[in-house]
Design a protein around this nucleic acid. Structure first.
Lengths: 183, 183
DNA sequence: TAATACTTTCAGAAATTTCTGAATATTCAA
DNA sequence: TTGAATATTCAGAAATTTCTGAAAGTATTA
């Protein structure tokens, strides 16, 4: 694949984005390149296209492997490794969410839980604990919810997203149905 | 407020978290401090507690203002500004989502749209555009959805979250109801 | 108006993150 | 085995981000 201006602007922007999603600029660029390339790319291809060192490519690919976002493939009679992005865009988004949950949310929740188990030493700590409990509950809710959304089938998830704020209406149905059952 | 070990561990960890959410460590720490302090704090208080310079505190508070996460208050006969966190934890999460959407998602969507408007120069670009279209659609879906969730009342949102993957069941009810209406 | 008490700004320093490339390791064919 | 081709590692360099503190700005009081 050649670096046309179109491809370049996508790849570079995605690099900046990547750094918001938990990996650095280069890793984002490498991933962007692999996503929009129909053919698998060798580490040398990648380094040349992005103008970065071979070592940096190697580190970036290692990171992408740890996020399970790339695949290594081979060609007969060729010792080089060739890299491909793995799964659909949806899978990618899921992986990023999941990985971030594991790396950030889980340790935070565990720290907050520990703090809440401690005895407050004075009124200030007691107040702090109240606020920390709120944060803990919020994070726990969000974590559990996103986890349960991820377990939904893609079609259902899509219905839900298409519903938008119409979800409010659906919840009213649900309340009525529950009320009838209770009769 | 005094910096006890409990408060310290919360504040420092929150600082690390903050840097994942779009602002730097110090900004996260300042915010953490304000959230768990019942009394408003002066810029000097904050600087002393966190062991950072007066200038840094000022820059951090400016950033938090731009995220609309803090309030300035005053005391009679005292020229100092006192700072307080603003709104509930929920409000905070909403602000962070919204602000990040504005700063990151919107520009990305606009770039992707521009790329998709260009004519593909060759087969490679055509393939790239297909993948870019997928990413664009995904981001647009997520953006619209999170926006519509934010417009939901807190109670409804809470019901929805409590529902977890049970939301799948509710969607089935909805389908049945729609089907009946269509009769 | 001047003095005081505070806040903000920003150039350069310090800290942190990322990148390079030579050295080292691995793989595979002969 | 050996050697050629390739991949990985990591110490130090480069780039980037964050922080400091002195100087400049602002608001209030007398």
């Amino acid at each position: 694949m050649r670096m046309t201006p179109m491809i370049e602007s996508f790849v570079f922007h995605f690099g900046e984005m990547g750094s918001r999603w938990g990996f650095n600029r280069t890793v984002g660029q490498i991933y962007a390149l692999l996503v929009i390339s129909e053919q698998p790319l060798s580490a040398n291809d990648i380094g040349e296209m992005l103008g970065i060192s071979r070592g940096n490519v190697s580190m970036g690919l290692k990171e992408l492997h740890s996020w399970q976002l790339v695949h290594t493939t081979h060609r007969p009679g060729d010792r080089k490794d060739y890299y491909q992005s793995r799964g659909s865009i949806w899978d990618m988004a899921n992986r990023v969410f999941e990985e971030r949950r594991k790396r950030e949310m889980d340790p935070t929740l565990s720290l907050l839980r520990d703090i809440l188990l401690d005895e407050a030493g004075n009124a200030e700590e007691a107040y702090a604990q109240e606020r920390i409990a709120e944060i803990h509950d919020l994070l726990e809710n969000i974590t559990e919810w996103t986890q349960s959304l991820q377990s939904l089938s893609p079609e259902k998830l899509n219905t839900l997203m298409k519903l938008g704020s119409g979800v409010g209406k659906v919840l009213e149905f649900k309340d009525k149905l529950m009320a009838k059952k209770a009769d």
